[in-house]
Simulated scan of single mutants.
Amino acid sequence: MSNPNTQALSDAGVSIWLDDLSRERLSSGSLAALIEEKNVVGVTTNPSIFHAALQDGESYAAQVSELAAAGMDAEQAVFKITSDDVAAACDLFAPVAAASNGVDGRVSIEVDPRLARKTAETIAEAKELHALVNRENVLIKIPATVEGLEAIAETLAAGISVNVTLIFSLERYRAVINAFMVGLESAKANGHDLSKLHSVASFFVSRVDTEIDARLNAIGTDAALALRGKAGVANAVLAYQVYEESFSSERWSVLAAAGANAQRPLWASTGVKDPALPDTLYVTELCAPNTVNTMPEKTLLATADHAVVTGDTVTGAYAKSNAVLDELAALGVSYNDVVAKLEVEGLEKFEASWNELLTDLAASLAKAAGK
């Protein structure tokens, strides 16, 4: 039986994806149970998630021994291990993908974060990952850096579905949507079936509050403190407004007529960091049709336990959200400075996790090889 709270979210047009994957989660049946009981219809991964997963050496010991015997180095091994997990998850979600015509049942795998500023290398690795996983319901995850925009378009042009990640600003989100449409226009010209291409745009939420609230605390006035915990939701609400405007344009109508699927907004970084805020804030306040909310398990369980889902909380909140950003600007909080800092930090965190993963895996391979 589905949980009533997660079912209410699904009924409101929100696709629930789990922001986690591991070999243990697959083998134990816990992911299958979340599909059955908590309306989970997809999975996202990132370098930090895989680094945490591989800390459980027991689940991967047999494969690490095999890869060591095959003479693989850490970089080769990490692609093999992570793509195997993603392929297995894609197989688990295959019935969901079939039932939703490919809209859901999606599993994301990210290109090497060290390539985020390298367009050609990102395109090449996106194609390599797609071939390695070799499942129709995989999404290749590409960061929304300036250099990533062309990579997003070219990957879609090659007929590969994409999850665009690390979006913090409304300006960059508009550029991502443009890259998506450029990619689809090229895919159409290349003879690809647009109905088979899917994409989500991962707009990050909690990190915006963490950074802005620190600045508000430093200002310390009553007006500043009253705005804490409001910027992340306001920013995402205005992103949805951009989505509505962009996907009602004449340009989009031409692609839609050719069978294209709209790129859905995906709310990422939805685990609430501030204990003073409701732990389901980024779920209940970002409920809108045709969205994805990818949740860490803690947030998913909190949602299932006590979230109050009241339907669409987004489309009526545009004016209020604009007012929040205006008030922040009046206090001297620079939106552009915040989002630029968050992009740099986000890339640094993923690159650090990736490097730690490679270091740990190299040690495990050497041990398995008896070195």
Results as ranks from 00 to 15, higher is better:
V324K: 12
I152P: 03
V208T: 12
W17I: 13
N137V: 15
H51L: 15
G13V: 14
D213I: 04
E125Y: 02
R106L: 11
I49V: 02
G220K: 00
K367P: 14
A304N: 04
Q7L: 15
R207W: 07
V111A: 04
P275Q: 07
E348S: 15
N137W: 13
L26M: 05
T280H: 06
F93M: 00
G29I: 01
P113T: 00
L286R: 06
F204Q: 03
T82W: 02
T310F: 01
S2I: 14
A61Y: 00
I212P: 14
K320C: 04
A256Q: 15
I35T: 12
A153L: 05
T310H: 09
G370F: 09
A157G: 07
T45A: 08
S15G: 05
L31K: 10
L129Y: 05
V133C: 09
A87S: 12
R264C: 08
S83Q: 04
A239N: 08
G370N: 03
E154M: 00
A124T: 15
E285I: 09
E327V: 13
A307S: 02
A116F: 05
D112P: 10
P265H: 13
E37M: 05
V40K: 03
E66Y: 07
P95I: 04
T270W: 03
A53Y: 09
A189K: 00
D85F: 00
P275W: 01
V78T: 13
V86T: 08
E75C: 10
Q7S: 15
S100F: 12
D274R: 10
T291N: 02
D213T: 12
E356I: 13
G316L: 11
S206R: 12
N178G: 14
D91A: 13
P95C: 07
E285M: 04
H130C: 11
